[in-house]
């Protein structure tokens, strides 16, 4: 039985490596399409971590929404919008580079210290389970208002996106 634990641990470390390498590729690559690829790799790693955290449903949703929808929308935007394929070397190492490295490093270590020195109380007993039935029942009974509000937000965002992308075309025609 102990061998399965080691296999699971190796998978976990592999997912961590996916997250880290993907996110570094997403912020460091000079070609924007490679950044989207790194983002997809990082999201796949996060989906694996959700699986380790016990939620099969969120793993599938992460792959479906983030990798399947958001990355495709980003690729679509890059290809339609004629963004610069290559980013200038001087723009990559611009005046903000030192500020970005120092600020993100400082915030990383400050948050790590605050996580490390905080006192967490692990829960001993759970009142529900991780099944999809329990999740759906909660979402439609207890969190019904939030569930409806997020659909209104999505509707407003889609209508706003259509209006934003469409306004210029009428200006071009007229």
């Amino acid at each position: 039985m102990i061998i399965y634990r080691y296999i699971a641990e190796g998978l976990f470390i592999g997912f961590i490596m996916l997250v880290m390498s993907g996110s570094i590729l997403a912020v460091r690559s000079r070609i924007l399409m490679h950044a989207v690829l790194g983002l997809a790799v990082s999201f796949l790693g996060v989906a694996g971590l959700y699986f380790f955290l016990g939620s099969m449903f969120l793993t599938l949703m992460q792959i479906l929404i983030y990798v399947g929808a958001i990355c495709v929308v980003l690729v679509f935007g890059i290809m339609v919008g004629k963004t610069p394929k290559e980013i200038d070397e001087k723009q990559l190492r611009g005046k903000h580079s030192i500020l970005a490295v120092s600020l993100s490093t400082v915030i990383f270590f400050m948050l790590s210290a605050s996580v490390f020195f905080a006192k967490w109380n692990p829960v001993t007993e759970k009142i529900g389970d991780f099944s999809m039935a329990y999740l759906g029942k909660n979402m439609l009974y207890h969190y019904c208002l939030a569930f409806e509000l997020i659909s209104v937000i999505l509707l407003a965002a889609i209508i706003g996106a259509i209006i934003l992308a469409r306004g210029g075309r009428e200006a071009d025609l007229g």
């Binding site: 997250v19 880290m20 996110s23 570094i24 997403a26 912020v27 990082s42 996060v46 990559l92 611009g94 903000h96 580079s97 500020l99 970005a100 490295v101 600020l103 993100s104 490093t105 915030i107 990383f108 948050l111 790590s112 996580v115």
Partner: peptide, 13 residues
């Protein structure tokens, strides 16, 4: 935290 710091780095730069 690593994801947050990486995103912040990319956001500033």
């Amino acid at each position: 935290i690593f994801l947050f710091a990486t995103g912040l780095y990319g956001m500033i730069q």
